[in-house]
Every structure is written in C-alpha cells, then in structure tokens.
Design a protein around this nucleic acid. Structure first.
Lengths: 181, 181
DNA sequence: TTTTTGTACTCAAATATTTGAATACAAAAA
DNA sequence: TTTTTGTATTCAAATATTTGAGTACAAAAA
C-alpha cells in the first residue's frame, strides 16, 4: 500500500501541509499514479506522526486550527528508501466497464456505444491534463537529470495509459458499429 | 463498485458455485478486469442471496458442507441491466511504481532499473495469459456475434494494457540507461 | 456587498479489501 | 502409501477507502 510511501516521498522533496499534500494527489504529480482523498491524507499524516516517520511544526492561525507543516524524519526517510528497494507488485486491475464483456448483450448496443464514447471523451481530456504535468520536462527532454527523468517517465506512463484507452475506444467503437450494421 | 455486478453478470450466463465464481475471477475472464478473493466472493454471494438478487440450490455432500449453486433472480437481472445502463467512471489509478517518480533518485539507479526490468517481465507474462483468454475468439474474429464481440473487446483491452506496460518499460529502461551512461 | 472559491483541518460511519486460519474430502502424483 | 493438488465453504480481524458533515477565515469574483 503506497499511500504512506507516496506521502513520505512528497515530504522527502519539501515540507508540506496536509492540505498541500492532498492537493498534490488531486491536481499535482500524485494524480497520475495514486488517488487519495483529503481525509485519507490527514488521517495518514496523523498516524505517520505518531509512528515517528514525520514531524510537524504547528503554525498558529488566529481564530482557527493550527496549520501543520509536515517534514520527513530520518526514520521516515529510511522507511521510504527501504520500501523503494523492495520489489513492488502491479496494482490489481478493477474496471467497471469490464462487466460489459460478460453482459453487454443484455442492454441495447446503443448503450454500450454511448458508454464507450463517453469513456473516449474522458480519456482524451485526461491526456491533456497529464500532458500539462510534463510541460516543464518536455522542453529539455534530452538533458534531464535523473531526478527529473524519473518524474518525466512516470508522467509518460500516465500519458501512455490514457492514450491507450483512447486508442482502444476507437478500436472498440469501430468493431461494434461494424457488427451492428 | 462492480464486485456485485460482475458476479451478477457471471450468473446471468450460467448458474455457478461460489468456488466457480471465484475461479473466474482468479483465472477466467474476470481476471482481465476485476480482482476479487475467494472470501470476498463468498461474502458477496451470501449478501446477494439475502437481498434477493440471487438464489441457490444446495447440493448436499456427505461429510462436508453443502455445495451451493447460485442463480440470478429476476430482481438481480434487473439490477444488472439498470447498472449497465448507467454511466460508469474509470477506476482510480493506484500504482506503487509511481513513487519512483518522486523519490527514485534516493536509491541507486540499479534498483530502479532492476525494478522496471522485473515489471517488464511480469507484463510480458501477463500478455501471454490474457491472450489465452482470447484464443477462442481470435480465430473467427470477423464473424463474432455481439455477445462474443463484447467479451473479445474487453480481453483486447486487457492485452493492450499489458502490452502498453511492456512498451513503457522498454522506453523507460532505454532512457535511464542512456542517462546514467 | 454578497457570493463563490480557496485555504486548512477534524470527526464519524459505512463500505471494500486483505490477510490469515480452519474444516473436510476426493483425486492425482510422488 | 504418503503427499500434494483441487474442490468447496466459513469465520474473524485488520487495513484501506469512500462518503458525508462540520468549523472557520481570507481573498477574489460577481
């Protein structure tokens, strides 16, 4: 389970508030490989702090709860590099649309086509979004230091994934339209 | 959450025991789009039976627990087609390897390379496995009825996914080896 | 100036998934 | 003949994720 280690990895780059970590998951680099809600992030940070993997500096704000700036500890850093060194397994695939393969014929083909067209549109938009994360790297692509290259490659993974979905949607739509013609 | 509807979809094709449904997830068509453990399947079938979406016929076996053959009910069938008719969202991406994009530079590049090579091998094997599911369809590919075409297309999605991973691994390995040279 | 958006954090409950153990017999392999 | 593999199901605990509500203020937009 990589929630812990993704958070540690963010904090290994710079101290962040829970709010900022959550934002990285929702809109930043995190969005291309791990989904986590704000509540999950806050809960995990509290746990990580209790376990000694991170510490925080409380910044008091008049009239409301303290803002907490979290940093990774030596222990947390060790946990992160240990984890990175161990082999990791691919995440299990879970895709609602797959049910169509078992029971798509129980609904009109228009429903299936509409659904795949919707998906296509969604992934087209995702390609654009993920490509934005890559903009900074795409320019000096041949002179990236390793740190940036790794990030670029993970973004590339995200772009490929979304593009492959679009390509499959095209293939599937063509085949279905051909078959129902 | 498609566990319920994937099970209903299996049962819409033929009555099955919990054991057989679990096998479909582990080794059969289910394996290319949804992961579920045997315990999950049994628990879900019990719940589905209580809610009236499925029924079972108990087959007594001397000396051990009854074998239960589950069938979908009219209500379950309705729930399935209703669900298929509603738009579904793509599953959130969760990929351990993504952490390398944030913190891969904290471990030796050999570790990153070794990990991607391992992944490559894994996905090469997955391509072979998923292609086996397609064998039956791949032959008379141009004369599939809709029911088979849908299943074929979902398998194609699985093949593409695994092949795209292999391609990315190749791309990434080349770029990293180039950079550390 | 009112409303919306953004910053920043907390609590609780429900649902889903993973992990581990247990029972029991048949058939096939060593 | 003993061991392993396959069939078939159940229970319990731990962990992870989702969903929904609530507090509070600042800044920007309408």
């Amino acid at each position: 389970m990589a929630l812990k280690h993704t958070i540690l990895a963010f904090l290994s780059r710079q101290p962040l508030s829970g709010y900022d970590v959550a934002k990285e998951f929702a809109l930043g680099f995190g969005s291309c490989f791990w989904k986590a809600s704000q509540q999950q992030v806050y809960a995990e940070l509290t746990k990580l702090e209790q376990q000694g993997s991170v510490t925080y500096e409380a910044i008091s704000q008049l009239g409301r709860l303290d803002k907490k700036i979290y940093s990774i500890t030596t222990q947390g850093y060790q946990e992160l590099t240990d984890w990175l060194t161990k082999p990791c397994e691919p995440t299990a695939i879970r895709e609602d649309l797959g049910v169509m393969g078992l029971a798509g014929h129980l609904v009109p083909s228009e429903v299936v086509i509409r659904e795949i067209e919707r998906r296509r549109q969604l992934h087209v938009e995702m390609v654009q979004q993920v490509k934005k994360l890559d903009e900074h790297f795409a320019q000096h692509i041949n002179s990236l230091e390793l740190k940036d290259l790794y990030m670029h490659l993970i973004i590339r993974r995200g772009i490929r994934y979304q593009e492959d979905w679009v390509a499959w949607c095209n293939e599937a739509l063509q085949a279905i339209k051909q078959a129902v013609k």
